Simulated scan of single mutants.
Amino acid sequence: MARELLEGNLAMAEAAVRAGVEAYFGYPITPQTEVLEWMSKRMPELGRTFLQAESEVAAVNMVYGAACTGARVMSSSSSPGVSLMMEGLSYIAGTEIPAVLIDVVRGGPGLGNIAPSQGDYNQIVHGGGHGDYHPIVLAPASVQEAIDLVALSFDLAEKYRCITIVMADGSIGQMMEPAELPEMRPVRKERAEWAVTGAVGREPRILSSIYINPDDEEVANHRLLDRWYQILENEVRYKEYYLDDAEIVIVGFGTAGRISLSAVRAARAEGIKVGLLRPISLSPFPFQPIEEIATRAQSVLVVEMNTGQMLDDVRLAVKGRIPIEFYGRPGGTVPFPDEILNEIRRMAHEPLSAEGDARLRWRQRVKKSQK
């Protein structure tokens, strides 16, 4: 199919339609409202279910109920709205049913603003809702990648009977780029053997997240953990750029990773040996590739549109072998390539020891720049 100029939100919505989503439940919130608007048009056109719920709490529980029937279902929201969904997401995880969520991240905390951010990392990647569970979290850095990851998310959710979240910062949702949409897949007629579809002529199926007996809850938690180990083994995704001889390695996801790539190319033109690892799966996180990089690089620079949330995971991977620096723009501010390039230049000419706190060094530089 030919490439066309597409807005990120509309592209993700249409990608879900073409992946065979059967029901969408959501509530408007900037900067993801275009997903809901597109679904309100396309789903009825195709004889599928669309419902604008009265709140995000209602929307996620509608997703929960529809997912129990084995249908392909999804919702979308942005940061404060996703916070309201957390109880429902935990129920979905505990019931072991597949569901897809698109989170187009905005500035926060609180109501924040409608500008692009990556401040949802902790609430999305590290569970959010109560209990022991891990969602799959995918972070696109372009409109095309957002399309591809939305389509993939339904397959992963069904393969592992889990929640899959596409976490796109607001830049990805609002930007327009040439991209190619996939072919339309047929809506599946068959239902999984666990789905609640009526019990005429067979034993009833019961789906629940309630395990009153702690021993039963423990068994269920171990079952979720075993499935997570399969995900860890099979579903780590990332991209590498210029890492063969890199002495400085940047780790950044989504828009921060994309902007970092521009800075890397500019630094390379100046003769600085720098590369980029861009995580695509934030959960499962690419710990092993980053650990391997730490055995041959001299330092790492973590770039995020927050105050350092992925930084903690990078630290776990590096294990103190080499210095880690941090550069962040929180609250809805997007960094420019020159900002990151200046950090690369500083690190190339002022190498630091592995001791010390990356956030503290970053805060000291921020204070100095504000004087």
Results as ranks from 00 to 15, higher is better:
Glu7Lys: 09
Tyr24Met: 14
Phe25His: 03
Thr33Tyr: 10
Met43Pro: 12
Glu45Leu: 15
Leu51Ser: 10
Gln52Asp: 08
Ala59Cys: 07
Arg72Asn: 06
Arg72Glu: 10
Gly81Thr: 11
Val82Gln: 01
Ser83Gln: 09
Leu101Val: 15
Asp103Val: 12
Val104Ala: 07
Arg106Cys: 04
Leu111Thr: 10
Leu111Ile: 13
Asp120Arg: 02
Asp132His: 13
Val137Phe: 03
Val137Pro: 02
Ala141Glu: 06
Gln144Asn: 04
Leu149Ile: 06
Leu156Ile: 11
Ala157Thr: 03
Tyr160Trp: 14
Ile165Lys: 03
Ala168His: 00
Met184Ala: 14
Arg188His: 08
Glu193Leu: 08
Trp194Phe: 02
Val196Thr: 04
Gly198Lys: 11
Gly201Cys: 01
Arg202Tyr: 05
Ser208Phe: 04
Ile210Leu: 12
Asp216Met: 02
Glu217Thr: 09
Val219Asn: 10
Arg227Gln: 14
Arg227Trp: 12
Trp228Ser: 02
Arg237Glu: 15
Gly257Pro: 01
Arg258Met: 03
Ile259Tyr: 00
Ile259Trp: 10
Ser262Ala: 12
Ala269Gly: 15
Gly271Asn: 08
Ile272Ser: 04
Pro279Cys: 09
Leu282Glu: 05
Leu282Arg: 01
Phe285Thr: 11
Gln288Thr: 13
Ile293Asp: 13
Ala297Tyr: 02
Leu301Trp: 09
Asp313His: 11
Ile324Gln: 09
Arg329Trp: 03
Asn342Gln: 13
Arg346Met: 14
Met347Tyr: 00
Leu352Asn: 08
Arg361Gln: 05
Trp362His: 05
Gln364Trp: 12
Arg365Phe: 03
Val366Asp: 07
Gln370Pro: 02
